[in-house]
Design a protein around this nucleic acid. Structure first.
Length: 380
RNA sequence: GUGGCUAUGGUGUAAUGGCAGCACAAGAGACUGUGGCUCUCUUUGUACGGGUUCAAAUCCCGUUAGCCACC
């Protein structure tokens, strides 16, 4: 028993593929703070909180790992503050694994003024306009202070559209930074590389080869869902997935539309994160077994039924559509809580059922059933 | 009772006699490694009845309603 623990302690991350079904995989990602069943969904907890949820509630609805943000926590409250109070887990009272995004994407999408330099990015805070600099060294130091279980390399997210020339330049920059991050990898913290290369297959291939030369605990794909047509995104997912090493976890960053997830799982991806369930919950769009619905619709005004009669989440077990609609329209705090609880539960449940289907060798059936279901639209 | 003022979508307000506009509310969407944010689209109106004019929310008369002042 004691010995087994030691083995795990030595390698901070262990990935076991339990079952394959074509290119589809079902596995377990083992980290010191807990196991993660894959394919896995990671709820987004930007500011050291999955908005509206307490850590107990997150556990109750089945979250095994969450995502935190380097960029946000660096700006507020400051990573030194979090270091001084014992790290991000202790700070937010979450004892399961945390993956931290490196800030590369946030610098790209949030800060108005962004100047890319050799050693990093100079940017203006979206909060108060103050100037800051983050590069690979800073990103690794911040993630060290946060104490996340999985850190991401600091990448340059290539905007869409990008010329081949620009994308190549951007890709080289990301590779250089990835190498630096790997050199600075923190003890006890796994590190994932990020594939860039925009919509160019040769560049995606080059990116993967570059990352493989360096060697990472896991491989992520970035630079997708940044405005490109869906078909292009799917094409890239299908192209890149199989090129990533089989024995390492594959993480598709930022993707969370469930149809896209199905495409990606089919291409061999294991991990996902997305603001979609949480943000949509806050904006009143809820996921149900019969499709998405907008809870503010007039038709739910006096509807006493649960949001999704087939759902076993606390929201569906205890409250009516009429009440959820009222809470949303009156902008009550409870609305955010109940909606978020439901949407995350729905995602967790979706992934759990998907894993069961893979285990049973029935992923294609699962995928087809969901595709058909998604057509039903809003009639619940 | 007399005099004065006012009347424009659900609400609050624009429009010199010349396309009735704006905000909020309401309705339908969108949201993919940030956003209780934001964006897109839509419905709804000149209190009522006459008159003048090529043309009326606008000018005139009456009715109704509200507000103010005086008896």
């Amino acid at each position: 028993m004691q010995r087994a623990l030691c083995v795990i302690m030595i390698s901070m991350l262990k990935f076991e593929v339990l079952k394959t079904d074509g290119g589809v995989r079902r596995g377990i990602l083992r980290l010191l703070r807990g196991d993660i069943q894959t394919p896995a969904f990671m709820p987004v907890g930007t500011n050291a909180t999955v908005k509206a949820m307490s850590s107990d509630e997150l556990k109750e609805i089945g979250a095994e790992i969450i995502l935190g943000n380097t960029y946000h926590l660096y700006l507020r409250p400051g990573h030194e503050v979090i270091r001084s109070v014992g790290g991000l887990h202790r700070f937010m009272n979450w004892d399961r694994p945390i993956l931290t995004d490196s800030g590369g994407f946030q610098v790209y999408s949030l800060s108005a003024l962004r100047q890319i330099e050799e050693n990093g990015v100079c940017f203006r805070s979206h909060i108060d306009g103050s100037m800051h600099f983050i590069g690979p060294a800073e990103a690794m130091e911040i993630q060290r202070a946060l104490g996340s279980d999985i850190a991401m390399v600091f990448d340059d997210c290539t905007p869409y559209p990008a010329t081949h020339e620009y994308a190549l330049d951007s890709l080289k920059r990301t590779l250089g930074w990835a190498k630096r991050c790997r050199e600075l990898q923190n003890e006890g913290q796994a590190l994932f590389g990020i594939v860039q290369g925009s919509t160019y297959k040769d560049l995606r291939t080059m990116s993967i080869e570059g990352l493989l030369d360096i060697g990472f605990d896991g491989y992520a794909v970035g630079g997708l869902s940044v405005g490109e047509p869906k078909e292009v995104m799917h094409e890239m997912i299908r192209f890149v997935g199989p090129l990533l090493p089989r024995e390492r976890p594959r993480y598709l960053m930022g993707i969370g539309d469930l149809m896209d997830v199905l495409v990606a799982v089919e291409a061999g991806f294991d991990m996902f994160d997305c603001v979609m369930p949480t943000r949509n919950a806050r904006n009143g769009t809820l996921f149900t077994s019969a499709g998405r619905i907008s809870i503010k619709r007039t038709e739910f005004k006096a509807d006493e039924r649960p949001l999704d009669p087939q759902c076993l989440c606390p929201t569906c077990r205890n409250y009516s559509r009429a009440y959820l609609r009222h809470l949303f329209l009156t902008r009550e705090i409870l609305s955010m809580r109940l909606n978020t609880m439901h949407n995350i539960y729905f995602y967790m449940d979706f992934f759990r059922k998907m894993r069961e289907a893979i285990q049973a060798g029935k992923f294609q059936d699962f995928k087809r059933r969901y595709e058909n279901m998604a057509w039903i639209e809003t009639t619940v």
